[in-house]
């Protein structure tokens, strides 16, 4: 029975290879499907590039401190979308400064801290030595409609903060660094 099935399959493949038009058609269909798959994957990745997992540290009044969500750039604004569904936006035009710095933090929160404290013979200290992770901190200074200065701080995975900062700067967010560079360029122009 199995032999019969294998033979039948071999015959079908053989027939396909014998006829060049069929072979071409088969290859085209297979190649085309692959291309379509690649485009969809590519589109998905470019859309998700903009959204990064983030934790709100402080500054967004409507959102509680320590809330987790996704930070992305959408239609001229920096959007923090909570996992629960609510969101808060900062208009890119209102951003006065963007900074990115790196911080080293202990992971695990209160349960981990309690576990470390309960571990005998100083074992908690050894755990603490390895239970830390580097994060990026994205700091955004922006103005409200009344001209009042606000500051918001987000914690992102290592490397994400710098990417988001560059994207913000590319979309027109002001930055002290950019202003300094412009001043340096203009001063060098004056000297020449």
């Amino acid at each position: 029975m199995i032999k019969r099935l294998v033979m039948a399959k071999r015959k079908r493949v053989g027939r396909l290879l014998k006829s060049p038009s069929r072979t071409c058609l088969t290859l085209m269909v297979l190649f085309g499907t692959g291309l379509v798959g690649q485009t969809t994957n590519g589109a998905k990745s470019s859309a998700s590039d903009a959204a990064a997992r983030a934790t709100h540290i402080l500054g967004m009044g409507s959102i509680s401190k320590g809330a987790n969500g996704r930070l992305s750039l959408q239609e001229g604004s920096l959007q923090f979308q909570l996992d629960a569904g609510r969101d808060a936006k900062i208009s890119i035009a209102s951003i006065q400064n963007v900074f990115c710095s790196e911080q080293d933090r202990q992971v695990g929160g209160v349960p981990m801290a309690l576990g470390q404290a309960a571990t005998p013979f100083g074992g908690g200290r050894v755990i603490a030595l390895f239970a830390h992770k580097k994060f990026d901190t994205l700091t955004v200074e922006y103005l409200d409609p009344n001209g009042g200065l606000h500051g918001a701080i987000f914690q992102l995975n290592e490397g994400q903060g710098q990417i988001l900062r560059s994207q913000l700067q590319a979309r027109g967010a002001r930055s002290l660094e950019l202003a300094d560079q412009a001043a340096r360029v203009s001063s060098s122009g004056v000297q020449q």
Binding site: I57, L58, G59, N97, F99, S101, Q103, T137, T139, E141, L149, H150, G151, A152, I153
Partner: peptide, 12 residues
């Protein structure tokens, strides 16, 4: 001072 600290002092 890290800018995050400056902003955090202001907001707090």
């Amino acid at each position: 001072l890290d800018p995050a600290f400056r902003v955090a002092i202001y907001e707090n």
